[in-house]
Amino acid sequence: MSRPSGTNLALGAWTTLVFLFLFAPIIVIGIYSFNGGRLLTAWDGFSLEPFKAIIERPTVRHTVAVSLQTAVIAALLACALGTLAGMATARFPGRWAGPFTLLLLLVSVTPEIVDGIALLPWFVTLGQDWSLLPFNNGYVRLVIGHSLFATAVVTYIVRARLVGLDASLEEASADLYARPVTTFFKVTLPLVGPAVLAGGLLAFTLSLDNTVISSFINVSGTTSWPVYVLSSVRSGLKPEIAAVSTILLVLTLLVLGLVALVLKRSGSSVTDTMAVN
C-alpha cells in the first residue's frame, strides 16, 4: 500500500463513486419491491403487497416457471457441448482449433440482437417451411437461443481449467491400459468437474436474464420472465416486477457465490475464469 497522498485519496473517492453508481439502480429496485403503490415508479408507502401479488397472479408465476425450466435445460445442454469442446481444444490442439476458436469468438462478440433477428427467420424456415415441428415449440426455441453464448462460456472455462492441469494423469491412465472411455469418466471428468459446474451455473444465470434473443423468438404461451417484463415496460410496470427481480437477484447472487466457492476450492482463479467473456 502506498502512503495516502492527495492523488490516492482522490482516486479512492472516485472509485467509491463508481461503485455507488454501479449499485444505485440495484438498491433502488430492492427498495421499490416493497412499494405499496399501483405503479412501480410512483412510491406509495411500504408494503408486502408486491410479494403477495407474485403468488396471486398466474401470469407472473407462469413466466418465471418458463424461465427457470429453460435455464436448467439450456445450462445442461451448454455444459454437454462446452465440456467436450473445451477438452478437445485443451488436449488435442491442431490445425482445426483455429477456425473453431474464431467461431467461438464470433459467437461471443456478436450483439445479441443479430442472433435474435437471425434465429427468428431460421426457426420459421425450419418449423413452417420444412415442417420440423419441434422448432415451433417455444421451449425448444428458447433453449437453442440461450445455449449459443453459454456454450462458448463453458468451453472457455473448461479449457482454462484443463490448460492449467498436467496431462500426465490421463497419460498414466492410458498407460495402465484404461480404455479412452474409462479414462474420460474416471480421470478427465473428475478433473474438469468444478469448471463444468461453474460454467453450468453461469449458463443458468445468463439464460435466466436473456431478454433480447428471447423477445425475438418468443412464442405466445411460453413467454419468458424478461420478455414479460420488457412488454410491461410499454404497458405499465407494476411493483411485483421489482419483487420478483429482488428474489431472482438473491438467487443469482447465491449461484455466483457458489461458483466462486467451487472455483476457489478447486484452486483456479475466480477472476481469471469469470473475466473470460
Partner: peptide, 17 residues
C-alpha cells in the same frame, strides 16, 4: 455483481430513479 444481475432490471432501476 451488477454485470451478472439482469440487464433489463438494472435499466428499469434507472427508469425508477
Amino acid at each position: 455483481v451488477p454485470y451478472w444481475t439482469s440487464f433489463l432490471i438494472r435499466t428499469i432501476g434507472w427508469k425508477v430513479i
